[in-house]
């Protein structure tokens, strides 16, 4: 069987619970050592993004409406499934140039991070809610509510850990996400999508595009039905542009940047709070 030809994997994007190619048919080649083609990667266009926003918006209310316990179970299920397929993640990261050891470290750290955030779904509300002792005879409380549809521009590196770490705070809090994977190292993003697909994450909750920031950043930041942008990259001039564009509908822009994505500071519920609005409700207390 030594001469058997590999069955090569087709790397698609994940939108609305389905694996799709770019509507344009455009792609970019991903090359490995010695310039050998590793895979052809879909080049998402603004129309792909537009469709993804529609799916994400459609899924948001239901996702937020699930019980916190249920969201936690679904996220934990992601970790379970990643654990079972960790070799595949490691192999992909190696194909993208990591050593076996590095790839293993990143994969395990990613799984741990999913478990960490899965545990927050039914806890962050208690941390970020208040009962406000107002002077008048009213019961007054403030609760976090998801902002809605969040665009995540994941870091180039670490490709898997960065992507998952920047998606999780949004998802935990009931938002839905359109994430742009690392351009240079997108392979594991597809495998992550497959995990999402076969775990119980409803279609549209996490949508993963591949492509180039310069094609998409403007549309990410000007789309009027996007509530927030998490910019997890270093380039400050692009951040500036995104902030300016965000003015159109006052979408919230967060620059999330960690020197070390493995550090404990990434394990941080305040990242969940950043993607929440606070709703204050008043009601009289009387007979």
């Amino acid at each position: 069987m030594a001469d058997r030809l590999d069955i090569q994997k087709t790397y698609k994007m994940y939108v609305g619970g389905a694996f799709i190619r770019s509507e344009s048919g455009h792609y970019y080649p991903l090359t490995g050592k010695g310039g050998k083609l590793t895979a052809n990667i879909c080049l998402a266009t603004r129309k792909d993004f537009r469709d993804a926003v529609t799916k994400a918006r459609g899924a948001q209310e239901k996702w937020a409406g699930r019980s916190a316990y249920n969201r936690g179970q679904i996220l934990y299920r992601i970790a379970e499934m990643m654990e079972g397929r960790k070799d595949q993640f490691i192999a992909e990261l190696v194909r993208e140039g990591l050593t076996k050891k590095q790839a293993e470290k990143e994969t395990l750290a990613t799984i741990d991070r999913v478990v960490y955030f899965a545990g927050w779904t039914d806890k962050y509300t208690q941390l970020f809610s208040t009962v406000n002792p107002v002077q008048s005879s009213h019961f007054n409380f403030s609760l976090p509510e998801p902002m809605g549809v969040v665009v995540v521009m994941a870091p180039e590196k670490p490709s898997l850990l960065g992507l998952v770490s920047s998606i999780l705070p949004a998802i935990v809090g009931g938002n839905t996400v359109i994430a742009l994977a690392s351009t240079g190292a997108p392979l594991s993003a597809l495998t992550f999508s497959e995990i999402l697909h076969s775990s119980d994450v409803p279609g549209g909750v996490i949508n993963i595009l591949t492509g180039k920031t310069e094609d998409l950043a403007e549309h990410f930041s000007t789309h009027m039905d996007v509530n927030a942008v998490v910019y997890a990259r270093e380039d400050e001039s692009m951040l500036h542009q995104i902030q300016e564009n965000a003015t159109g509908n006052l979408k919230r822009v967060y620059h999330v940047w960690y020197k070390d994505w493995y550090s404990d500071e990434v394990d941080n519920p305040y990242a969940i709070a950043d993607l929440q609005e606070t709703k204050t409700t008043w009601h009289p207390v009387g007979i």
Partner: peptide, 14 residues
């Protein structure tokens, strides 16, 4: 008379 009268909110009245 069980359904005739609108409800009254005490705090609002005060």
């Amino acid at each position: 008379f069980k359904t005739l009268s609108p409800r009254v909110d005490q705090v609002g009245v005060e």
